[in-house]
């Protein structure tokens, strides 16, 4: 009892200190983000975060033209959705034998997959560029979609297998005894049961592809085919020094889908840990 009386005030001051430290760290993390939001509504935006003066939606109006925003955002959508779709289909197919049959080669394959997640593939865009030149795939959406899909596959297969492992096998056994084939069991029984998991994998891959800058920056040279990540960068190069407000407005528009999808994935999986948790060894 006496000890409690002694420690309580100490606890309270410790709590105060830790709250102060937390708030301070929070402010440091917030400051760079705040600039994007404030500058996008600012009629006289600079590189400093400041209250918009005058407050205006002009930046959005100027940016929201077909060639500035809609076409690049449409290109981003095409690339990311294509990549996420290919990745999810291929990963779910691959996850089925890995999850359901205990074959020795599966082990090797899974270790290979984990090894693949560690390779800095995006850091080696130079040989990727050479490969795309020799296959004549520069500016080709199918080629870039397949490449993006291949780079996200190791992680996607790993996630899909873990989600599939938690689907009980007993229902499938019934289907098997009824003579159902492997593919129809997968499509009719397993996939519906792991729908939230598939959603998480799809969104995870989509967010990564949507945000990817380096890959389209290297592999797309055609102005009309550039996704938003690259066109924002060229916008920065061309008008950045004079139109920070428009740059920030475009950046904000381009970030909103990612934030929305992240909130959705939290709903689907019940926690912000979903994306990081999938990567835990």
């Amino acid at each position: 009892m006496a000890a409690e009386g002694l420690t309580a005030p100490r606890h309270r001051s410790l709590r105060l200190v830790s709250t102060l430290v937390l708030v301070l760290i929070g402010i440091c993390f917030l400051l760079p983000l705040v600039w994007v939001v404030l500058a996008s509504f600012d009629g006289s935006a600079t590189l400093t975060a400041k209250a918009p003066s005058p407050f205006t939606l002009d930046n959005f109006v100027k940016v929201l033209t077909p060639e500035n925003a809609w076409i690049p955002l449409g290109n981003s959508l095409l690339l990311s959705a294509g990549c996420a779709l290919v990745t999810v289909v291929v990963a779910v197919l691959a996850a089925y034998p890995l999850s359901r049959y205990s074959v020795r080669s599966n082990r090797a394959f899974l270790y290979g997959i984990l090894f693949g997640t560690g390779l800095p593939i995006t850091a080696m865009m130079v040989p990727v560029y050479s490969l795309f030149v020799s296959l004549d795939l520069l500016n080709s959406y199918p080629g870039i979609i397949l490449f993006l899909a291949a780079t996200s596959l190791p992680m996607a297969i790993w996630m899909a297998k873990n989600f599939m492992d938690s689907v009980p096998i007993s229902i499938e056994e019934a289907a098997w005894t009824d003579g159902s084939s492997m593919l129809s069991t997968l499509g009719r029984i397993v996939v519906p049961l792991m729908r939230p998991g598939i959603g998480v994998v799809f969104i995870f891959v989509f967010i990564q592809a949507w945000g990817n800058f380096f890959v389209p920056f290297i592999l797309i040279t055609d102005q009309a085919a550039m996704p938003a990540a690259v066109s924002i960068y060229s916008f920065f190069g061309a008008y950045g020094a004079v139109a920070y407000g428009q740059l920030a407005a475009f950046s904000l528009l381009y970030s909103v889908p990612v934030l929305a999808l992240y909130l959705l994935v939290q709903r689907l999986s019940g926690g912000s840990f979903a994306l990081a948790g999938a990567v835990k060894g």
Binding site: W35, V36, W210, G211, F213, A229, F236, L252, Y254
Partner: peptide, 12 residues
């Protein structure tokens, strides 16, 4: 955040 936006924010 998409990496290009985060990079602009850090640049600013």
């Amino acid at each position: 955040m998409p990496e290009i936006v985060a990079s602009f924010a850090a640049y600013a």
